[in-house]
Structures are given as structure tokens and as C-alpha cells.
């Protein structure tokens, strides 16, 4: 069973459908027991960091997420929430990734919206995905590169487009909106 975290961030429908399309059973839930017992957990995300963290803290989901031992995938805001802190609403986040989330300098159109390529790919998440493949991004904040970076993308500056620490994975792009490449990546995650 693949658990998709239900919280005050949008885009749950698309993630759920993409996982179903790959032949998995899903449950969209905020129940701690169901999350803890799931084979994999996905934190979807379109929303704002401080209100999302406030929601997670108020529902004690922050403690639950930190304690997960199965593979966890944070998508977009979901990935940023797994970092230490975000400049969006000066938010203290879950701290699974040792990265800070910063606002893009306004040197080009922000948010960074559209298809962009990923480079310096590492690890199982990108199995059978070529460097330079395009994924779909929509975000105004970015995570800096660090030792947990497993993919990088360039827009205004080089930033982390995917990261991993132990069983925690994150993608800044939306695999559920990235056509075939996105489905490959989700398949890789689901077969971990």
C-alpha cells in the first residue's frame, strides 16, 4: 500500500492517479497508523511552506514523518518541507535533508515554471533516466546543492532538483506531471 499524505497542499489527485496508473494500491491519509504501516509514503506538494508546516505540527504529523523508516518521497513543497528550513515564511522544517530552502533572486521570471533538464544524476531514483532528461517544475524557492544532492538543474543559478538521505527522497520537479520520464522515476521509487 502506498500512502499519500493528506495535508493542506494541493495536487494530491495527480500524484494518486500517477501511482494508480503504475498498478499500485494507494491510500490518501493523515492517519499516523496508516502512514507508519504503508510500504512507501509520498508527500505531495503545491502550497506555501509556513502554512503547510503549521498544519503538520498541529496534527503531530511532523513527528510521524520524521520517524518513517520505509522509502519516503517528497515532491516539490514536500521535498522542501524535508529540508532544515525555508525562507518561505521563515519556516523551520522537518530537517531530514541538511539543505536550506531559499528564494530565487529575481533575475528571471519567478516562479521557475516549465520543463527543465536534470544533470549529475545519482542513485536508484534515476535508474534508466538519461542525464539531460526534462522534468516539469513550478517553484519560487529552491534548495541549495549539498552532499545529499542526487540531481541538479540550472535556472538563474544551479540548484538541487533531487536529493536523498537514507530512506528519504525528494524531487523539486513534479514526476506526476513529467510525462514518461516522471513515470519512470515514480516506478523506480515504487520498486525500491
Amino acid at each position: 500500500m502506498i500512502a499519500i499524505l493528506k495535508y493542506n497542499a494541493g495536487n494530491i489527485f495527480s500524484v494518486n492517479h500517477a501511482v494508480l496508473a503504475l498498478g499500485h494500491k494507494t491510500v490518501v491519509t493523515d492517519n499516523p497508523d496508516v502512514l507508519l504501516k504503508a510500504d512507501k509514503v509520498i508527500l505531495p506538494g503545491v502550497g506555501e511552506a509556513s502554512s503547510a508546516m503549521k498544519y503538520l505540527n498541529e496534527h503531530s504529523l511532523d513527528v510521524v514523518i520524521r520517524s518513517l523508516t520505509q522509502p519516503v518521497l517528497g515532491i516539490c513543497l514536500g521535498m522542501q518541507l524535508l529540508c532544515t528550513a525555508s525562507e518561505e515564511g521563515n519556516t523551520f522544517c522537518l530537517g531530514k535533508f541538511d539543505h536550506k530552502v531559499k528564494k530565487f533572486p529575481p533575475k528571471d521570471l519567478v516562479p521557475h515554471t516549465g520543463w527543465n533538464s536534470v544533470h549529475n544524476l545519482k542513485g536508484e531514483l534515476f535508474r534508466n533516466i538519461n542525464p539531460g532528461s526534462d522534468f516539469y517544475f513550478v517553484h519560487g524557492f529552491y534548495a541549495e546543492s549539498g552532499i545529499q544532492t542526487i540531481a541538479e538543474t540550472e535556472y538563474i543559478l544551479p540548484f538541487t532538483s533531487a536529493m536523498q538521505q537514507d530512506n528519504f527522497f525528494g524531487t523539486q520537479f513534479h514526476p506526476e506531471k513529467s510525462g514518461k520520464n516522471g513515470l519512470f522515476l515514480l516506478k523506480n521509487f515504487l520498486s525500491l
Partner: peptide, 11 residues
């Protein structure tokens, strides 16, 4: 819209 969303994996 929901029929489209269940088969389309692009924005």
C-alpha cells in the same frame, strides 16, 4: 476534467 486528469501526466 477528472477523466482527463486520470490519463494525462502533463500539466
Amino acid at each position: 476534467v477528472s477523466q482527463i486528469a486520470s490519463v494525462v501526466q502533463i500539466p
